[in-house]
Simulated assay, not measured.
Amino acid sequence: MSYVLPGESVPAKHVNLKLGPGLLQVSHVAQETAVVSTKAGELKHSANNKLWWIEGNARRYVPAAQESVIGIVIARSGEGWRVDIGAAHMASLDGLAFEGATKRNRLNLKIGSLLYARVSLAHKDMEPELECFDAQTRKAGEFGELKGGFMARCSLQMCRHLLDPNHFLFPLLGSKFPLETAIGVNGRVWVNSKEPKHVIAIVRCIEAADPDGSNMDALQVKKFLGTLDI
């Protein structure tokens, strides 16, 4: 486990290096490049060292390219939409940023619609831009409008925990009843199930396991789940 402060150099190296939140690649006079941290937190990387990021517990989401987010459509803007992703600035979503979308065949989103999208552009001097398809395959995949269900809010740290396939919460809940989820790294989780009481139980358990909430472990959440009417 390694912690860094803003301005510290980070040993991030890979042929196809990708930097996540909290890291910045800078160039020196000698034409060498280095990676430095822009915020305090725990330095983390993927198993193959391709993706590096700083794990912090910031209160507000700062967009980073390639991250998956859950957004709320707040307005129509020309040929696209303005989307709230919980950042300092609204994001823009072009009407053609969907699989199979053309000028004659576009998705008709309504104000208040929920979207699972990918940040395609994130820059400190520009509004973030979103896309609703996979960058590799150009297929929609899991991205697009989220219909039904419920959007829960939690800490940014909890979202990153839930994205870890080894985290206990969703496998535990999935053993009790069927569920659908979409996890945005911007502090929002969409959940759905056949019965409203199951949706309520999922949200209650997310709140219970959240480090900014009760911070329950697997045994405590399992015991808590037993007290709910499911």
Rank of each mutant, 00 (worst) to 15 (best):
L51I: 15
K147G: 04
G7C: 04
E195L: 14
K13R: 14
K39C: 11
V36H: 08
V191P: 04
E42P: 00
A97E: 05
A140V: 04
E55Y: 00
E32W: 06
K18T: 10
S120W: 07
F170T: 13
D94Q: 05
S120K: 13
L169N: 13
W81A: 01
F170C: 08
W190T: 04
V199E: 12
S68W: 02
F98L: 03
M90T: 14
T102L: 00
D134Y: 09
A87Y: 02
G100N: 13
F224K: 10
L228V: 11
L121Y: 09
V69A: 11
Y3T: 04
E180G: 01
G187W: 05
Y116R: 01
V62P: 00
E42R: 14
V191D: 06
V29D: 09
N215T: 06
I72K: 14
P128T: 11
P6T: 13
L24Y: 04
H167P: 01
W53I: 09
N215E: 11
K176W: 10
L96Q: 01
P21V: 12
N166W: 05
Y116L: 07
I202G: 03
V185I: 15
K222T: 09
H161L: 12
L121W: 10
R76V: 08
N186Y: 07
R106L: 08
G78L: 11
F170M: 15
V83F: 10
L43A: 03
P6C: 06
F170V: 14
G141L: 10
G71F: 09
F98W: 13
L173D: 06
K110E: 15
G86E: 03
C154T: 14
E67T: 13
V221E: 13
A182Y: 06
Q31H: 13
P11F: 04
G71I: 10
V4E: 06
G174L: 10
N166F: 05
P11M: 09
L96A: 00
H167Y: 15
G226S: 12
P63D: 07
G56F: 02
Y61S: 00
D125P: 07
F224D: 03
K139I: 00
I54T: 00
A152R: 04
D210I: 02
M216S: 05
K103Y: 05
G141C: 12
A218M: 14
A209C: 11
D134F: 04
A34T: 12
I72C: 09
D217H: 02
F133P: 06
L146K: 10
P211Q: 04
L172A: 15
L43N: 03
E131Q: 14
T102N: 00
L96W: 04
N48W: 03
I230G: 07
V221R: 10
Q66M: 13
V73W: 08
A34W: 04
I72S: 09
K39S: 08
P128K: 11
N215L: 09
K194N: 10
K176Q: 14
L219H: 10
T181C: 07
G41K: 05
T137Y: 01
C159N: 05
K197W: 12
L109Q: 09
N215I: 03
R104I: 07
